[in-house]
Design a protein around this nucleic acid. Structure first.
Length: 579
RNA sequence: CGGGGUGUGGCGCAGCUGGCAGCGCGCGGCGUUUGGGACGCUGAGGUCGGAGGUUCGAAUCCUCUCACCCCGACCA
């Protein structure tokens, strides 16, 4: 590609309101442009990268038996009503009517469509297992998009769907995807961890997320330093201390002025946080008042609390709502409250004689004990894991890291096939629902995440596997010097003939402009020719990551570039430990 | 949805106590330059987000509205 004709140019300055490095650099490098909030066009350079990411995905999915197909981006709402998600999913799903007044939706995922196809195409156990996938547009009207391609409303996702006779078959496909995803992300040059995760709106029995570590990640993962454990914070647990055998002591009131926070209370009474009980109040979507109790040294995990209560959503309760059940904000405890669902964390069950609120301003209760002084509707793990808490496997202090979710895998089971009637007949003629899994990777998010992990102050540093071009070729010199242009033209043809992808900067700009743009765009190897190098019959070669150049005779440029590319590609083969 | 912020040429910004719409970069032309974002001359390019209002006069003041960004809530 000759840069003089490239559609989309580089920017010296990015729009002032962008925050993430990947967002800024991909805009400056002329790879994408915004159209609206969370909606982007990919320009030719960016599209080439995303296409390469998708091709890697395609190769690895095909290698585990995937068959590519294509499903629509507009769906009749009836299918979503059949699965129940038409009503369960909120406004992030866009609903509209066609000209015939039929309810339609924009695709945010394709479980319903695959299941509908399966019930038409699959009748017999002989046809299973199956693995289908597509790479298709998704629309999710998120309440808030942010960060360039990291979180968008319209995006392209590879979603694959496994169809099996039974759980054992699903296990195989789940493990196959796990391996394929590891190879995909390694080939893209991503550093990532795999963590256990919540199943969220997808439902199903198990889920893992592939998390690329990044300071701009929206998720927090908890990692055991010994590698014994890794989970998304939404579901992460930690090793609990054994229940205390301390005998219950009589409950008594104690005056505690100005102690509306647990910290202030512990300081005032000069006791550790772990000897206090903390009340946290929520209103559930069902209208119930959720009264959560946890030890003062721990925090509530709302995802766990939602699961423990069966509530789809929780919002913090107002002071009026808290007083209406007989509690007092800042001095709350479950002792004596009414009309509330009381959810107690295991820490409170296992720690006797806690200090808790007296439900009146300025007073607390000493020696509060579950079972004696109040009853729980639910006792469960509702505590948030955090850095420093002990690993549930080995007890070592956990690390907490920010991460970007670049892929995830779900065991759906029969949640969709049962509701939509996607069944097969076994060898005995018995009908069974197909056992399903679903697996997603956002190609644009992967691309942006690679930039987050691979850039410097000058620009992007693409892994060779997904770089828009392998080589930036620069002709340096004045318009009246024909030598560099002629030499560069020849090198351009020679490299193309050797199947090297070349972005040829044939513009008339000065050297500094070309160097800066080459660094910004981030192709792995830069080849320059100028009067200075030609005087020795040489070209200058410089890997994007290197600080020093090498000079090689013109007729050795092609083989040298090929060697350098091979060396850059070797660690990105997808094999474990290749990096 | 709550809180905060910003809308002025392609990009970055100034102008905002009302009085000719500006600067830098970029873009066209001419010339000089030519290895890390050159210089001179000369041009083109703007419904000042939109609507309504106040005023002799509005980018500037008032009202409404739209869009975008950030934090939070939310979220494969």
């Amino acid at each position: 590609m000759r840069m003089s004709h490239l559609f989309g140019r580089t920017l010296r300055e990015a729009p002032g309101d962008v925050e993430l490095p990947s967002h800024r650099l991909m805009l400056r490098a002329g790879m994408m442009r915004p159209l609206g909030a969370g909606i982007y066009s990919l320009l030719p350079l960016g599209f080439r990268v995303v296409t390469k990411v998708e091709q890697i995905i395609r190769e690895e999915l095909n290698a585990i038996g995937g068959q590519e197909l294509l499903m629509p981006v507009v769906h009749p709402a009836d299918l979503w009503k059949e699965s129940g998600r038409y009503d369960n999913v909120g406004p992030e799903m866009t609903r509209f009517k066609d000209r015939g007044d039929r309810d339609m939706v924009l695709a945010m995922t394709h479980e319903e469509i695959v299941t509908d196809l399966a019930r038409q195409e699959i009748n017999s156990y002989r046809q299973l297992p199956q693995l289908v996938y597509h790479i298709q547009t998704k629309w999710r009207d998120e309440p808030r998009s942010r960060g360039g391609l990291i979180r968008v409303r319209e995006f392209t996702m590879k979603d694959s769907y496994s169809l099996d006779r039974d759980e054992a078959g699903l296990d195989v496909q789940y493990r196959n995807h796990w391996g394929a995803y590891e190879r995909i992300f390694r080939r893209c040059g991503l550093r990532f961890v795999v963590v256990g995760a919540d199943t969220g709106m997808m439902g199903g029995s198990a889920s893992h997320e592939f998390m690329a570590l990044s300071e701009y990640g929206e998720d927090i993962v908890l990692l055991c330093p010994n590698g014994d454990y890794a989970d998304n914070r939404e579901v992460a647990t930690f090793r609990r201390e054994p229940a205390s055998t301390e005998p219950p002591r009589p409950m008594e009131e104690v005056e505690t002025p100005d102690t509306t926070t647990i910290r202030a209370l512990a300081d005032y009474l000069d006791i550790p946080l772990a000897k206090t009980g903390k009340a946290v109040f929520f209103k559930g979507d069902s209208g119930r008042f959720i009264f959560a109790v946890i030890r003062g040294d721990l925090e509530i995990n709302e995802t766990k609390l939602r699961k423990a209560t069966g509530e789809l959503g929780l919002t913090p309760a107002t002071a009026e709502e808290i007083r209406a059940i007989g509690a007092e904000p800042g001095y709350g405890s479950p002792v004596g409250v009414r009309d509330a669902t009381i959810v107690v964390d295991e820490s409170v069950r296992d720690t006797p004689n806690l200090v808790a609120g007296a439900n009146r301003v300025g007073w607390h209760l000493m020696n509060v004990n579950l079972g004696r002084d109040y009853q729980a509707d639910v006792v469960a793990d509702i505590a948030a894991a955090d850095a420093g808490l002990p690993c549930p496997v080995c007890g070592a202090p956990l690390d907490a890291e920010r991460a970007i979710e670049v892929g995830n895998i779900f065991k759906l089971g029969t949640r969709y096939s049962a509701m939509l009637g996607a069944t097969y007949l076994d060898a005995e003629g018995q009908s069974h629902p197909i056992v399903m899994g679903s697996y997603g990777i956002g190609s644009g998010r992967v691309t942006a995440t690679v930039v987050e992990q691979h850039h410097d102050d000058k620009g992007i540093i693409w892994p060779v596997t997904i770089a828009p071009y392998h080589v930036s070729l620069l002709s340096l010199g004045g318009a009246d010097e024909s030598g560099p242009v002629e030499a560069a033209d020849k090198l351009y043809d020679a490299l193309l003939s050797a199947d090297v992808e070349v972005l040829y900067d044939d513009r008339t700009d000065r050297a500094g402009v070309k160097f800066n743009d080459a660094d910004l765009i981030g192709c792995p190897i830069r080849v320059s020719v100028s009067a200075r190098t030609l005087a020795r019959g040489e070209a200058e070669l410089k890997p994007r990551v290197a600080s020093e150049s090498t000079f090689v005779p013109l007729d050795e440029v092609v083989p040298t570039v090929q060697q350098m590319l091979a060396a850059l590609a070797a660690p990105l083969s997808g094999e474990p430990g290749a990096e």
